[in-house]
Amino acid sequence: MLPVSHCTLDHDGCVVCSDAGIPLRVVSIEGDDALCEDSAGNRASVALELVAPVRVGEILLTHGGVAIGKVEPDAPYLVPEARATEGRTR
């Protein structure tokens, strides 16, 4: 299972809403496009120009067939700390 969100390629709510981002893992790269896979195993081609350079295995946030962000693997996950700590700024 991928981190970040429950969104998958076949269940992403409303793409038009503009805020549906789907996390996909890069399977292979060909030119400016990558074959990517979601947490349910669905695969799709995704345009990479806006997040290049990209490596196989990275997780991208995609929207409407275009990668718009990368999931930051080292970013601390805030939820477990939510019990006692202040929210971080920046």
């Binding site: 806006l50 290049a52 970013a75 601390p76 700024t89 920046r90």
Partner: peptide, 22 residues
């Protein structure tokens, strides 16, 4: 009274510069 980023695992403070340029 601040702007805070709860979603830092996805959201960079400065955004996606390549997307903004495009």
């Amino acid at each position: 009274c601040e702007v805070e980023n709860q979603y830092s695992r996805i959201v960079p403070w400065e955004g996606n510069l390549a997307a903004l340029k495009s």
